[in-house]
């Protein structure tokens, strides 16, 4: 991906077509896009997968664990 494409993707957050085909890698359930934190949230796994430079990082080890009151 070129730098230009990267910055466009980062501005848009995530490609909606990409969001449509992604599920949580651990629970295979739907993901919710959190535009404010720029994360993909799996309520079932209680994990939030980060999006860096427009690239979703679908690694459980890189995900943020959700606190009980959040989400």
């Amino acid at each position: 991906m070129t730098e230009e494409r990267k910055s466009v993707a980062a501005a848009a957050g995530i490609d909606p077509r990409l969001l449509e085909i992604l599920v949580c890698p651990l629970t295979k359930t739907v993901l919710r896009y959190d535009a404010e934190r720029n994360e993909l949230v799996s309520l079932a796994a209680r994990l939030a997968y980060p999006i860096r430079d427009g690239i979703p990082i679908m690694l459980p080890e890189e995900a943020r664990r959700l606190e009980d009151d959040a989400a």
């Binding site: 599920v23 949580c24 890698p25 651990l26 295979k28 679908m58």
Partner: peptide, 11 residues
Amino acid sequence: LVIDEEFSPFA
């Protein structure tokens, strides 16, 4: 996107 091949994130 970045994946771990053991945990596919695809519908």
